[in-house]
Amino acid sequence: MAEEKKISQGLKSALELGPVLLFFIAYTRLKDETYVFGGTEYSGFIVVTVLFIPLLLLSTAILWKLTGKLSRMQILTAVLVIVFGGLTAYFNDEKFFKIKTTIVYGLFAGLLGIGLLLKRSWLELVMDDFLPLKPEGWMILTRRLTAMFAALAIGNEIVWRTMSTDAWVKIETFGFPIALFAFFMSQSFLFQKYADEPDEEEA
């Protein structure tokens, strides 16, 4: 397995969040425009969605080149963006790209839920190096995060089905990430209570 290389947190954040912010900026500029390709009219949203695909892939490729590693979430996101972005363009229908968010959060909730049924925290497998917790702490965090992902999936369905595309883009770009950030901040007491401190020999 290739050794992960270290890069600055600022560069890493720029590569991860840059495409999403550029999508938002491009949407605000092109949302009222209509473009014709091959005799078919496409809204600004669909054009921006199609442009977002190579931008995300380029950012992901640069991140992999610089670090030598990609997380499962980054790989899954790239695959789903390609699939549902392609469906959005092919059927000329915005809903396919909007559903992608529901599927991402729903998959995370489902996978973590399956682990819980097996009495395992699969969250621990991907976050243990970053956040060392005792086993009981991982189980509690996994149950809470499973519920959070399920709530976000349901929330996305409500938003895109009942609100405007403008509202969905803003909530997708800022609302859901802020909600996840707030969730992890709210778990600070759990992190302190179940922190897995190394013993003296390990230290």
Rank of each mutant, 00 (worst) to 15 (best):
T49S: 11
F52E: 07
L57V: 07
L58W: 13
A61M: 09
A61F: 09
I62Y: 08
L70P: 14
L70W: 10
S71A: 13
M73I: 10
M73L: 12
L76S: 10
T77F: 11
V81Q: 08
V81I: 15
V81W: 11
F84I: 03
A89P: 01
A89D: 02
Y90P: 04
K95R: 10
F96M: 03
F96S: 03
K98F: 04
K100T: 01
K100L: 05
T102I: 01
Y105S: 07
Y105F: 12
G106R: 00
F108N: 05
L111F: 13
L111E: 03
G113H: 13
G115N: 11
G115W: 13
L116G: 11
L117S: 14
L117D: 11
R120A: 14
S121N: 09
W122R: 13
D128C: 09
D128T: 11
F130K: 11
P135I: 09
G137A: 09
M139Y: 08
R143I: 01
A150Y: 00
A151N: 04
A153L: 00
A153M: 00
G155C: 02
N156H: 10
I158A: 12
S164E: 09
W168S: 12
T173H: 12
F176R: 03
F176D: 04
P177S: 11
A179P: 06
S186I: 03
Q187T: 04
Q187K: 10
S188V: 06
Q192I: 04
